[in-house]
Structures are given as C-alpha cells and as structure tokens.
Nucleic acid binder design. Sequence first.
DNA 1: TGCAAACCATAAC
DNA 2: GTTATGGTTTGCA
Length: 203
Amino acid sequence: MLEVHVKTFGDTAFGIVYEGKAVFASNFGVNSEDVLRSFQRMFPIEAPLRVAAEPSAFAQKAVIVMRDIYEGKSTDETVLLALGRFPAYTQRVLKAVSRIPVGYVASYGGIADAVGGGARAVGNVMATNCFAPLVPCHRVVSSSLGLGGYGGGLRVKYEFLRREKQGFTEPNQIPIEGGVLRVFPVEFVLRKLEKKHDATTPI
DNA sequence: TGCAAACCATAAC
DNA sequence: GTTATGGTTTGCA
C-alpha cells in the first residue's frame, strides 16, 4: 500500500507518496493540506493513500532532499523514483531532466534533441510531472530563454531559478544515456527577464 | 513582436 | 484507430 509523508519546513510543505524505498510521487505547497490534495488528484480512488504514522528513514531522507533542492543547494543525494508505470519515452525525459545540474537550465527542444521526440512532447511530460521538485522541471525553459511554463506558477519557477544561481558563464554539455544534453547558465534566463521587465518585479 | 503552421508523445473516446 | 491536447519552435510579415 502506498504511504504518504508530508513535512513542513518554514513556510513550505514537502510531501512524497512512497512504497518501500521508491518514491511514486512528490510535491510541495504552502501547507500539508495543499500537498495532500495534489496527491489525491494524482492517485484516484482505486489506490488508497495512507499517511504514515511513522515515516521510514527513507521517507524522511527524501523530504530533506526535496527541501535542499527547493533551497537551491546542490545535493548529490539521490532518491529512487518509481518510474515503471510510465511509458518509455516519458521515463527517458524524466531521467534527462534529472541530470540538469544546479545552476544550469535546458530547453524543451534541447531535451528533445538529446532523448528523441519533439519539444512539445517534452513539454507534455513536464506538465504531468509527478515528481516536483525531485525531477527539476523548473530547470526546463523555452529556447528563447523565456521561462516557458510551470505547474505551480511562473513566479515559483522564477524564484527557484534565482536561488540556483552558481555564477556559471558558459554553456555546457552533459552526457546522458544515448546522447548529450546541452545546458546553459541559469543567469542567461535571469538576465533576459530582468532586462525585459522592471528589475524588481520580473514576473 | 506577433501569428501561423509544423511537431510529437499521450490519454481519452 | 482517431482525435484532442499541450509548460514548443521556427519562419515570415
């Protein structure tokens, strides 16, 4: 049976749906009710969810990792994701996005070049991503260095990227299974946004 | 800039 | 099978 663990750090709640040592879904929100509601939408009635009375060590670690990602820290901890229920292509996209390092972003089309398919198909996977922010879909932007979209709202995406600045100045290439993924510094996106809008309220 | 047409995997019928 | 649906992209006015 799937279990749920939600924990609030500061003013943000982080939650996972898990079984054993694999995460079936993750999300964050303004409070635990918010996160639980999102899980109920992802897992319709047939899969009953049970809030863990005593979250396993794995569950507690996973939530910590999520908080670290949220805060923009570059963690090398990895959390096992249960991807088996998704189509093969979806799995490839999710894995590729997971490889984008903190401080860099990739475009929808760039991901498509690396794993096959097209940019819109990649966008579809992002739109239905069940693993925010463990799969850092906030690091996927439009080819014109615009923000693209984000389930939680563009403001949230922008704040993510701002916290992830690392001072990189040059594009880079990340080797992934079956190809290379072209990435570029998150500063490229932030600069463009700040130029376009008022520097204080870019969104 | 703005708009239209091409693009591509999925889910729903 | 077919159709509808996007967190896209590119080209062209």
